[in-house]
């Protein structure tokens, strides 16, 4: 298996063992960013747009700093410049149309877009975001991108024969975007596919999408796949054939009820192991997180374990999100120390 991980080991890493720590992506937006957005949407003036752009940059800078202060090895900017995980991309891809809010559940709506003609790349999606973050960040950056299957699944399809054809078209566009990002220096991409593992046969569509996505991407680029709220028994061990380096899963929220699914056969990829419940504002203690990390070591050895929260942290308050990250990193470093001292048995 190729090594895409060691490039993210900090030069001054304190322990012999290295368990990569990161986050999934989203982070609570500062109140003033939402206010700046409201003002822009109300006035739509050049002035309010400039202020909103300034506020977004400031918010990215702050979140990057908070991620670095928490001690994460790989950071993101909390997706401060993205409104929503489908809308943001659909606004940039040519061929989409917006008709208004639709119900997700309860009184939660999203502006579900419609694909009304053949899709084409349009303007770069994340290049500006990455270039700004690169200037600010001292730590390596991961770029999360919503995957083609989720983009397809969460849109109305008025043009393509079916969801599969639409997913493949989107996969080609994602491939183009990743090539652009890699050309600018990105070395860690995370494809978010929360729609995966929701139907019995979708693993095949996602595998074929990933083949398209990773076509022509250099070997030193780390590709992760994030999945949440699904039935993992539907996709494991099939996903071990996917052309990705890391498979990132939500487990803490379900109290590790699905852990045994991953023990059926040797887990031959890196695992991004969810150790923080993002739907609970209670801050897990360092000891509690440590216990959860040890569960990850039942699946893979330390050099293939990535520790992260279950999912994006955006639903929490900033203070809680920050404290959860701090405890997550502390717990990881303690596990590494214990591994160094030979106090933890490693499953090979």
């Amino acid at each position: 298996m190729r090594d895409t991980r060691s490039q993210f080991r900090p030069i001054d890493h304190p322990n012999d063992h290295f368990i990569l720590t990161t986050v999934v992506g989203s982070y609570p937006k500062p109140t003033w960013l939402n206010q700046a957005r409201e003002l822009y949407h109300t006035h739509s003036s050049k002035d309010s747009r400039e202020r909103y752009n300034e506020a977004k940059n400031d918010a990215s800078s702050i979140v990057i700093k908070e991620h670095e202060d928490a001690g994460l090895d790989v950071i993101v900017d909390g997706e401060m410049k993205r409104n929503e995980m489908v809308e943001y991309f659909a606004e940039r891809i040519r061929g989409y149309e917006f008709n208004g809010p639709v119900k997700v559940w309860g009184h939660n709506y999203f502006d579900k877009p419609s694909v009304v003609e053949k899709l084409s790349y349009g303007e770069p999606w994340l290049l500006e975001e990455y270039k700004y973050n690169m200037k600010i960040a001292e730590k390596p950056i991961k770029v999360p991108i919503t995957g083609p299957y989720t983009l397809s699944n969460w849109s109305f399809n008025e043009f393509y024969k079916d969801e599969v054809e639409l997913s493949y078209e989107l996969a080609e566009l994602v491939n183009k975007e990743i090539k652009n990002l890699v050309g600018s220096g990105v070395r860690y991409i995370q494809i978010d596919e929360p729609a995966l593992a929701t139907t019995p046969e979708d693993h095949k569509i996602v595998r074929d999408c990933l083949e398209r996505i990773t076509e022509g991407i250099p070997d030193n680029v780390r590709i992760g796949l994030h999945v949440c709220y699904g039935d993992y028994s539907r996709i494991f061990p099939k996903i071990l054939d996917y052309p990705v380096d890391e498979f990132d899963v939500e487990l803490a929220n379900g109290n590790y009820a699905q852990l045994d699914v991953f023990k059926k056969v040797p887990f031959t990829k890196d695992i991004g192991f969810g150790v923080i419940d993002v739907h609970d504002s209670r801050i897990e203690s360092v000891e509690e997180v440590k216990e959860r990390i040890l569960k990850g070591l039942e699946i893979v050895p330390p050099d293939r374990l990535t520790v992260s929260p279950d999912c994006g942290l955006k639903l929490l308050s900033r203070e809680v999100a920050y404290k959860k990250m701090v405890n997550m990193v502390k717990a990881t470093r303690m596990v590494e120390e214990e591994l160094d001292r030979g106090e933890i048995e490693i499953v090979e």
Binding site: G100, P101, V102, K103, G106, H107, N108, Y109
Partner: peptide, 20 residues
């Protein structure tokens, strides 16, 4: 679907969480 003009109003009266 709820008419758009009631969506905001009901969100405010009932909230966005499960108890709404």
């Amino acid at each position: 679907p709820l008419p758009d003009w009631t969506k905001d109003e009901l969100s405010k009266l009932k909230g966005h969480q499960r108890d709404g």
